[in-house]
Design a protein around this nucleic acid. Sequence first.
DNA 1: GTCTATACGATGATAGAC
DNA 2: GTCTATCATCGTATAGAC
Lengths: 199, 199
Amino acid sequence: MTGAERPRRRGPYAKTAARREQIIDEAYRLFSLKGYHASSLRDVATAAGMSQSNLQHHFAGKEELLLAVLARRDELRGGDLPGDEGASFERHIVAQAKANESVPGLIALYSVLAAEATTEGHPARDYFLERYETLQAEYTAEFEALRRAGRLRDGVDPAIAATTVVALWEGIQLRWLYTPDAIDASATLRAYLELVLTA
Amino acid sequence: MTGAERPRRRGPYAKTAARREQIIDEAYRLFSLKGYHASSLRDVATAAGMSQSNLQHHFAGKEELLLAVLARRDELRGGDLPGDEGASFERHIVAQAKANESVPGLIALYSVLAAEATTEGHPARDYFLERYETLQAEYTAEFEALRRAGRLRDGVDPAIAATTVVALWEGIQLRWLYTPDAIDASATLRAYLELVLTA
DNA sequence: GTCTATACGATGATAGAC
DNA sequence: GTCTATCATCGTATAGAC
């Protein structure tokens, strides 16, 4: 019970954390490549160089692994657009949509999960509920700021515009997954923003 | 080989057809309620009052059953809006979106499948590819007609408007599945149409 | 043609030894 | 922390009764 007997916190914990990161890396890669349902825990475990049971020692179930992958996705997404702090709202959105085209597997994963998770009791349901709430609040604030700047077209409701941008974005990405050559996601988003904003 | 020896076509075939309809009914109900992946063939078979093996005598695999359910969906959808032949394009879309709110399970099924089917080799992929192509052509033609009538706002591309309506529609339905009380799907669609159309 | 019974490989999950 | 062993359930396939 003395302090000397207590293991150093950076020891085993660091290894466990590293092991978790390693698993998430492989799960992220496989989920993005083949999809969530098509990837088995044994596949992920083998890719990470361990047994399936050992993987489940770090992640209680496939659901928990899925949530970890989604969290990883958000981290990576934040780094997609370095140095656009001063960029305008519409430029930010269009640029982000453009950047998404470089990770189709990730978009596919996100789209499928967003639809799957509508089911009551789905492990990722809370994730998407929170995400939509955050996006709705952020975008509504942006459109309200634009209205104060006199750049929002008369008669346009900021909240409805925010809902429209989010819904249109997800819908257009789905279309893009089917026919990437026939759909220009960022251009379609830009067209809506140009319709709703002035000068 | 004579005509007299040939069995009456309405006999066994009629029973088979009825059996198929019965299976589709239950599959439709379960898929809408719990989703495609979460519903097993054994569940569907039990609900239809038969063994799983017998179900597979009528439908070679789960994929074939899925396509039959999708076809059933289109039949039901056609009857959702009786007598709107003379309705305008925007009224038709808004009314259809409104009608969809009465069948949430159906919307959930459609949304999940639309995302799932982006995967290469998914049984429903061709269904959605065809559907999107048809909708894109129909809506583009509608917007072009509106432009000829002088009702399309200057600078709006009919094809992009068509893509936007389809994408926005699917995206807004997804949002509606999460928070039905917070999202007014038909009002959001109407807002876009009012933005892009005049008088 | 219609149906039941049975078995196969793969999956997500769990228990317990070391 | 890592493993082997085991389990119920999944989609699928086949054999055979009526």
